[in-house]
Amino acid sequence: MTDRIEGTEQEPPKIEFPCEYPIKVLGRQQADFETVVIEVFERHAPGFDSETIVAKASSKGTFISLTITIIATGPEQLKALHEELMATGQVQMVI
């Protein structure tokens, strides 16, 4: 996707891999949500630091977000991670 600024096309910023890459995963508050998400991350980014996971519940407690930082190795890894997270049926959004 490109943005037009005064008649010029601007490329999105390039990400240089490997890099630290925070990913926010949003889903409904369920007993096994965090476990399911972490299992997916372990398959796609083994060895990520689970101590750095930030969990935040919505104001009414209906939803929960997990922010997990991984060392991303490339766009293929990120795409596969996103697809498997969404396929769990528990994840509403990945940012």
Rank of each mutant, 00 (worst) to 15 (best):
S65Y: 00
I95H: 08
F48W: 04
D49K: 03
Q29R: 12
I68G: 02
L81G: 03
L66W: 07
I5L: 14
F41S: 10
S59Q: 14
T73V: 12
Q77H: 08
E9Y: 05
T73W: 03
R4A: 10
V91W: 11
P22K: 01
Q90H: 07
T2V: 10
I23V: 15
G27T: 05
A55P: 00
Y21K: 05
E42F: 01
E51T: 14
M1Y: 06
I71V: 15
A80L: 12
T88C: 12
I70P: 00
A80Q: 13
K24A: 14
T73K: 08
V54P: 00
I5N: 06
E84Q: 13
L66S: 04
G7H: 13
T8R: 04
D32N: 12
E9H: 08
E34T: 05
Q29H: 13
Q10D: 01
T35V: 11
E84I: 13
T52Q: 15
S50Q: 10
Q77I: 09
T52Y: 03
C19D: 03
S50L: 05
L81D: 04
K79G: 12
S58E: 09
I68F: 03
P22Q: 02
A80N: 11
L26W: 01
I5W: 03
E11H: 06
M1R: 02
P46W: 11
E11T: 12
G74T: 04
Q30T: 15
T67H: 03
I95S: 12
A80S: 14
I5S: 08
P46H: 12
T88R: 01
Q77Y: 06
I68Y: 02
S50P: 00
V91H: 09
F33N: 01
I64Q: 11
G27M: 09
A45I: 04
G74L: 05
F33I: 12
Q30V: 11
S58F: 12
I38D: 03
K56R: 07
Y21E: 07
G61P: 08
T2I: 09
E84T: 09
V94P: 02
V94H: 04
T52M: 08
P75V: 09
L26K: 11
T67S: 08
I70Y: 05
I5E: 05
M86P: 02
Q90I: 10
V36K: 11
G89E: 09
T67N: 06
A31D: 09
V91M: 08
T67E: 14
K24W: 06
D32P: 00
E9C: 06
H82V: 07
T69H: 03
T62E: 15
T67A: 09
F17K: 05
Y21T: 12
E42S: 11
I64N: 01
R4W: 11
S59F: 14
I38V: 13
T8I: 14
G7I: 15
M1N: 03
E42D: 13
A31G: 01
Y21F: 15
I64V: 15
E20R: 13
R28W: 10
S50W: 01
K60G: 14
I38R: 09
K60T: 14
L78P: 00
V36P: 00
E84S: 07
I68H: 02
G89N: 07
Q29C: 11
F41D: 03
I70Q: 02
V40C: 11
L78Y: 04
